[in-house]
Amino acid sequence: MSRLRKTELAKVGFGLIVAMIVTALGCAILALPGEESGLAGAVMLNLDQAGAKNPVTAVLLNFRGYDTLLEIAVLLLAVLGARALAVDESADDSEHFRSSINPVLIGFIRVIAPVMIIVAGYLLWVGGHAPGGAFQAGAVLASLGVLLVLADINWTQHLSDYSERILLTISLVVFLSVGLATMFNARNFLEFSPSTAKWCILLIEAVATVSIAVILLALFCCGKISNARKYHETTRGRVE
């Protein structure tokens, strides 16, 4: 009893401390200047040279492209981490999983898959001047992949581990290559010339979409798409 009370007391105490922090932060928020443009002006000023009409994309891939490069590395790292933790159990791979395919789900996927691909392509393309971009597109593609996995559509069997790795890393490779390529033009790393910026960004985004999709999917599959089935045998049961 006393033990319980102690725990409760700790919770309440901690809650109070958090409340204090929240209050202080709230005060800070209230104390902020009401109007502040930040870097919006600078972004708008340079937008026409950035190769993307959408300011967010411009910031993401041009002004602060370096962050994005590292961010993709973060994603890759998550996959690497997942792979480091994965347990290879090819021996357990028995056939009884097959029985549980849900025909309704497959039908749904048949309809939704092309739509999602198109949506992804659209998001990618539109990212240059309107909301959208590689992350969103990649996420849509990855969702498709997740659906496929859940439906146990074994599309990954043709994907060797080697090519999977290439897919996982290709966006980084391309990003790096483009960045280095800009340097041949006596510019800085990732400094696109206004004329080619659009295409550079598009190229990067296109490749990134694929990579991000594969990475996110791989994350869902514990690092290895080819392992997907084994890992999600159980998940399926839950979702259905």
Partner: peptide, 16 residues
């Protein structure tokens, strides 16, 4: 962890 969290919080409050 509760202690730890408390300490984090208290440290923050104290610093402030």
């Amino acid at each position: 962890e509760v202690t730890a969290g408390g300490l984090i919080g208290m440290l923050a409050v104290l610093m402030y």
